[in-house]
Design a protein around this nucleic acid. Sequence first.
DNA 1: GCAAAAGTGTTATCCCTACACCCATGA
DNA 2: TCATGGGTGTAGGGATAACACTTTTGC
Lengths: 224, 224
Amino acid sequence: MSMEYRYKHPHPAVTTDIVVFTISDGALKLLLIKRGQEPYKGTWALPGGFLEPNEDLSQCAQRELQEETRLQNIYLEQLYTFGNPERDPRERVVSVAYYALVPIMDNLPVAGSDATAVSWYPMDKLPPLAFDHVEIVNLAQKRLLSKLNYTSIAFQLLPETFTLSEVQTVYEIVRNEKLDKRNFRKQITKLGLLEDTGELRRNGSHRPARLYRAVCRNKVQLID
Amino acid sequence: MSMEYRYKHPHPAVTTDIVVFTISDGALKLLLIKRGQEPYKGTWALPGGFLEPNEDLSQCAQRELQEETRLQNIYLEQLYTFGNPERDPRERVVSVAYYALVPIMDNLPVAGSDATAVSWYPMDKLPPLAFDHVEIVNLAQKRLLSKLNYTSIAFQLLPETFTLSEVQTVYEIVRNEKLDKRNFRKQITKLGLLEDTGELRRNGSHRPARLYRAVCRNKVQLID
DNA sequence: GCAAAAGTGTTATCCCTACACCCATGA
DNA sequence: TCATGGGTGTAGGGATAACACTTTTGC
């Protein structure tokens, strides 16, 4: 394809970048991709790419996300749009940033579609990032933290069924503080978002834990 | 200028649209502009326009806002980015929406730079809007309402100095409900955001009201 | 029986809500 | 003196925060 696209006025390129969070090994982690081309070749960066002519912004983010993780039904929300004229050395690029939450899993998928390196990094040990991606990541973390307080977003970081201790762990890791077990359970159950599955999980050599399900896992809602 | 801009891949046009709110005559009002050209010629629309090659997104919004209102130092915040491929019939347009808050004024400026009609509409009597602007306006109103609860954004709708009753009026109009005077005053003063100017405003035939100033009017901050 | 995580209540404090009257002024 | 909006306090109920022991299981 050597076709050219012509416009009477200058048009910036538009991309989406996705901040993909998950929790594993007791830490909040971020999905990064090692760039295979200039600029910033060899530097870690957020997954993302150019907007196709006939897709909506969220479709673009979803497509890019799936190309990197092969994951379906991942929670995805628009974060902010970054348009500093200098943010990409090649040309003017406006990037619509999204963030995504991948549920806790035993085997985190990282298979990239091509030979590029893909890896989960703990938020407190991030490598240097390309472009203005540090800024995007910081904003996403701030948003996640504050949404935890007034929405049911935490369940997007949990699998279909989970124990109350696992919910508490999500809150503790994202907020980076220990919480009181009894108070936490009172609060979280009072919200009416949890349904007891009636099943138990027998884990190690200790009392089994009740398994719960989020009443509406498909939509994040305001609470209180 | 008959110059053409060429790209190897299709690039959408990028615009900003601004949802400009103010309060007057006891109602939340929105600044609208009657379109002078197709598409949607003669229909009311949000102020906004194309991103220039060397300006940041917020600069673009600020510039468009100033061209319509001649106002400086207006609070401006990015809202959301709209990119439905069908949202503009001419070409693919991605619009970064902002919202702006204009303080209560006696003489609201509406002088457009050119001959276009510019007008403030009460939110409960909006005319039909061009493009997807209804959607943008609804989202902005929702955002304003929720930010009122956890930030000091209300002071952006007030002049330099103001009475407690005026603050209460802002809350009542945006939230569309009456509030208890004593409880409101206790809450708002407890936040530590208000500074007593020591001056009084003598208004009508009643006791004069104390005038207050927002401690940090230049930055909107989280409260609680 | 012992280690390890699950589960469970009470009390003191703070915050929110409901509610009604006096004050200072201009006409 | 009257009409108008400005200004003030208290009491009851509900939410929040601090705090420790028993239960169930696997080994």
